[in-house]
Structure formats: C-alpha cells, structure tokens
Amino acid sequence: MRRLAALLRPVRRAVLARRRLIAAVLAAAAVAAGLHAATAPPPATVPVVVAVRDLPSGTVVGSGDVRTVGFAPGSVPAGDVTDPVGRTLAAPLREGEPLTDVRLVGPSLTDGYPGLVAVPVRLPDAGVAGLLTVGDRVDLVAAEPRGESARVVGSGVTVLALPRDDAGAGSGPGGALGGRLVVVGVAPGDAARIADASVRAYLTVTFGG
C-alpha cells in the first residue's frame, strides 16, 4: 500500500496543480454541450388538425373548433382531414383528438361497415331521433299519412351519424316541416325502398330486444 501511495503521489500533485485548468476545461465542455442542444434543429413533425374542445356528434365544425398541432412522423392517424371546417361530425370528438374522415359525415361513414351504404332519412319526431346514438341498430318503421298500416322498411339498420340540421330545412309527407336528419347504414338492396319511404311516409324507429 505504501508503495502504491508513493506511486500515486506525483499524479495527485499534478492534478492539484492543474485543478483550475481542468475545471475550466470541464466548464467549457458543459457550455459547448448546452449551446449545441439549444441550436440543434427541432425534431421533424407533421401538421395534424385536432379538436380544441369536446365536440358532440352532429356539430358543424367551425374554425374555432380546431387547431393544428405537430405529430411525430409515423404517429399520424390514417385518414386525417386537413380542412374539416364546414363539415358535420358523425360521432363525438374529444379535445385533442385528430379529425379523421370516419368522424365526418361523408363516404367514409361506411368504412367500418362493409357491405352497407349510407342513406339519410328524416324522422319527423325529433324527440325520437334524440334517443339515438351513433352505432345503434334499429328497425325503421313507416306509417302512411292516410292511416294505412305501418310496416317495417328496414331491419337492423345501423345509425351512422346524427347531423345537427335546421329543423325547418327539410319537409315530411304533405309538406310538414321539422324532425331530425339521421344517416343510417343499410344493405344496398334496401336503400331505394327506405329512401322512398322517407319521403312518402312518416318514419320512426323501434329498438330490438
């Protein structure tokens, strides 16, 4: 041990003699590292439009409802929409959630429902429409204005969207105004019959057991 201490003594003296120089070198290295971190370019991002607040289904997206944030490459969701202003939400959207095509009323509504087509129908009773949520499966029942027997025109149809439209923007049988627009997913062979019933008869829904 004494021999080892004797060998290390000159090294210790040399370090102590140059401690100010070593400290200056270390300080300069720390400053250089900090400057490099401060001047390094920010990581690459991709602009994505997200909701600035929780938005309910049927909202017509306004410029104040969305903002653009940067997403890391590879994390951008499929079907992101760059200009959703003026379009209608088919489903609720959480604050910070990206706007994608399946969240908006349009052709992409049926992406998650292979084999179905989207058909807009108007339910004369807005209160009945208010009971629905996106994803519900219901039967569409048509009642003729002249008192003829009601009939089922669509069984197990899927509610795809509940747009918030002006109650006076549409008309029912006989020119009556009001109701609520509902977008449903139906088999292609049922689309014409349901569309015809929606303009000739009063539509309502029943919930299956």
Rank of each mutant, 00 (worst) to 15 (best):
L8I: 09
A176V: 12
V199H: 15
V159Y: 02
R146T: 14
G62P: 07
G96T: 02
G179Q: 01
M1H: 15
L7R: 14
R20E: 09
A126S: 13
L123R: 01
G79Q: 02
R12H: 11
A176S: 11
P173K: 06
G172S: 06
D65Y: 09
D125K: 00
P124C: 00
A169N: 08
A32G: 13
L177Y: 12
V48R: 02
V81I: 08
A33D: 14
V117H: 06
A29Q: 12
G115H: 10
V15Q: 02
A195M: 05
G79L: 02
E95A: 15
G189S: 08
G130Y: 14
V186M: 04
G179E: 02
A38R: 09
A187C: 04
R12K: 05
G170L: 13
R122A: 12
L99V: 13
V69H: 09
D125N: 09
V128G: 01
R12Y: 11
R13N: 04
L140S: 00
G115A: 07
A167K: 09
V157D: 02
V134P: 04
G174K: 08
A30D: 10
V157P: 04
V11F: 15
R12D: 05
T100E: 08
P124F: 01
A14I: 07
L4A: 14
P120N: 07
A23T: 08
R193M: 03
A33V: 15
V102Q: 13
G86I: 05
V81W: 07
G96H: 03
V31H: 14
V60R: 14
V105D: 02
V60T: 14
